[in-house]
Design a protein around this nucleic acid. Sequence first.
DNA 1: GCCAACGTTGGC
DNA 2: GCCAACGTTGGC
Length: 142
Amino acid sequence: MNFWLFKSEADVWSWDQQVAKGDQGEEWNGVRNYQARNFMRQMQIGDRGFFYHSRADKEIVGIVEVCALSHPDSTSDDPRWDCVDIKAIRPLTQPVSLSKVKSDPRLTEMVLVNNSRLSVQPVTAEEWNIVCALGSTEPQVD
DNA sequence: GCCAACGTTGGC
DNA sequence: GCCAACGTTGGC
């Protein structure tokens, strides 16, 4: 299983909206960046991801799971753009802020720190465990 | 609200 | 194929 991070501005698509979709999940659509798309094409069912609120909040708020493999993005007529579906698993007990991530010496290699503009990004297993710990949340990798 | 960084587009 | 212009993202 691999780990990822999905970014969204809370006033465009928020964690609460994601949670409201329940187990059926929702398309992670609207991505128009090749790098981000390519990561989604690599995702497998059951992969886990962090849900990050960019801009206003700048914090990791929840854990999601990939529930549909990459498929054409329904919001685009352009066949270049694919996306996966994700569903909310649970919130972090404590949201983990960007400043907290940046100030942790173990997380200096995180893509979130080094490439702030990439909206879908890989997370290492080690980073996953550290961020979960910062969020007082069990990694709960089955 | 500003602006640096980055990605994409399109003229040549 | 280069690169200037442009649009967007997202931290500050």
